[in-house]
Design a protein around this nucleic acid. Structure first.
Lengths: 182, 182
DNA sequence: GCCTTTGTCTAGCAGTGTTATATAACGATG
DNA sequence: CATCGTTATATAACACTGCTAGACAAAGGC
């Protein structure tokens, strides 16, 4: 066996650079504009180099998405653990980084959720919603998550009245915190 | 002026054929597999012919989506006008035609919703949800729609526990029909 | 018969993701 | 110091995409 005859240029560092450039480019011009050629040009290298960091364009997008879940989890944890504060933080996050959110949820990806091999950032983001309620319940958290996700995506595609963001959030909040009559 | 020296092959008919073939292909192999070449091959014509029916691939996908909204509106109207029945019909529709639903909501499209030029099928589908409630309210309907949409998409991408579909629907239903304490 | 109009096809452009092959840079060894 | 072997990078190509200009053919009116 022999050691590295040529120093590896810190793969992790370059992964981060590629992820960052992809995010920037996507947020500016949309995901279709994020091509391997343009990305390589932006970084001053050639396409094949990108394939030493990510096996495919899809793998790169998945990495960006995972990155996004990490940030989302942090954004949720950063505010007080009340349903309304956390839900508002969720909607704010989605509105602030629409393309990133798109990569996390709308673009095809191999990231499962309620499975055995669920990546850790996804679990952390989910618990950020679940633990916002006084009596955490899995089903309630799933419904809250779904409501937030629905509001975020429909809002982003211009299918809800922009002037009623607050009213909808209020209604969801009231519904979820009302004592169940069940 | 002069009349048609060659009979037009019923453009509307062919539009429907193309839409149908695109839907079938998408449902079978996913949207990326729906290429103009493959679609033309499936229909026994060449690519340029498709462009006489639709200006672009995007326009074709939009047409498929609009078609889907039409079917969704019909599926909702077909069941009794109760919140639970309509919401279940919505989720069933999304689960039965995942790629069609994807075209309607996840793929980029120019179909607005809460705008002046909102296509009529979209309005009909939305009212199918709104009018399911005893006292129709726009905000309530938007929230119900968002919850359904969130459940449908998160479920489709395997991010909710498959065994708890009914429990989540129950919870949403209870929340939305409970008298507001506000 | 011809001519005009129009639909269709062939062939091509520019761009994509991805990869096989060649080149150049570098550490370890003699 | 020179050579060797390894490995990151670059060049060039493949197969594919959406889309389109120009050539061909079919079908009515005269």
């Amino acid at each position: 066996m022999s050691m590295s005859p040529r120093p590896a240029p810190d793969l992790d560092l370059r992964r981060d650079q590629v992820i960052g450039a992809a995010r920037e480019l996507a947020e500016a011009d949309g995901w279709p504009a994020v091509t391997m050629r343009r990305l390589a040009g932006e970084l001053g290298v050639t396409q094949p180099v990108l394939y030493s960091a990510f096996a495919s364009r899809q793998a790169l997008i998945d990495a960006v998405a995972l990155n996004g879940f990490d940030e989302l989890a942090a954004a949720l944890k950063a505010v007080e653990a009340s349903p309304k504060a956390r839900m508002r933080a969720y909607l704010d996050f989605a509105a602030a980084h629409p393309r990133l959110y798109e990569a996390m949820f709308s673009l095809p990806s191999g990231l499962a959720f309620a499975a055995d091999d669920t990546p850790e950032p996804l679990l952390r983001a989910f618990s950020g919603i679940r633990d916002a309620f006084p009596e955490p319940d899995e089903t309630q958290a799933e419904v809250a998550w779904a409501a937030m996700h629905g509001l975020a995506t429909l809002q982003a595609s211009g299918r809800l009245r922009p002037s009623h963001v607050e009213a909808r959030l209020d209604l969801v909040h009231r519904m979820l915190t009302q004592p169940a009559t069940h």
